[in-house]
Design a protein around this nucleic acid. Structure first.
Lengths: 128, 128
DNA sequence: CTAGAACTTAGAGTGCACTCTAAGTCAATT
DNA sequence: AATTGACTTAGAGTGCACTCTAAGTTCTAG
């Protein structure tokens, strides 16, 4: 019977679980990133389900790879569009994948340059 | 005699060489990121030396690894501070290095999640 | 010498992604 | 029943990093 927490949670608990602020969670919902608007208990207070939490976590992955909010919304809109949008979603994610790889490469190149400068400092060689 | 371009260049040429806008180059100078203010030919027009260009390129590496402008300025101030600041500069760069590595790790984790979703789409399994 | 392009400055404007505020409502405790 | 604290909304405010504008100056070509 050890079923993992399946009770919907308040916005502040959702914030703790996802590492976002309550403000940001409301902002995401207003920005149309929430797939279906979060349920309300007492007709006003939000109740985040497990699925909501997992969705926010996926959004966070998109955002942490520098996908702009607008692009995230495009993806969400496609998901809302149903099965006809499978190909478009796949294309969007693949395109994003390429930008992420490019970012990783640029970052890695920059890191190498920074490491090089660190090495020069460690050898006491440098002036700038 | 094949000496590489060593003539100072105009701001628009500097922009082309560094991939930044002329606006951004002026902004960086005003923000105190330029080590020593760029020389002026005709007492008004900027002349970027090779050293200036290389410096901007290094700044770009710091920026492309998400070092905030304010932190970059801290580093520049240390460099201006002379040899006494070697240890502090090294420390700043090492600390930044850690944040870059953390960023790379998070990005890579997110990429894995995105790849996983792509794979599900490719197998025609998914709904969100 | 003149026209036009490129440059100068200070300061205002932009876009993004939150973040905060105000004024009020709801829930839990005393 | 009243207080306290978490929640609600719409909308304003913030911080960052540019980016643009206006009004004027300087360089270059003809």
């Amino acid at each position: 019977m050890t079923i993992t927490e399946t009770q919907p949670v308040s916005i502040s608990e959702a914030a703790e679980l996802t590492g976002m602020s309550t403000h940001a969670l409301r902002y995401y919902e207003r920005a149309g990133l929430m797939l279906n608007s979060v349920d309300r208990a007492s007709s006003t207070h939000r109740r985040y389900t497990d699925a909501d939490i997992r969705w926010v976590e996926f959004l966070t992955k998109l955002r942490s790879t520098a996908m702009p909010i607008a692009r995230v919304r495009d993806y969400v809109d496609l998901v809302r569009g149903g099965n006809d949008t499978f190909a478009a979603r796949l294309e969007l994610l693949r395109a994003h994948r390429e930008t992420v790889i490019a970012q990783l490469e640029e970052m890695t190149r920059s890191l190498v340059a920074i490491d090089h400068k660190i090495a020069l400092y460690e050898e006491g060689i440098l002036g700038s």
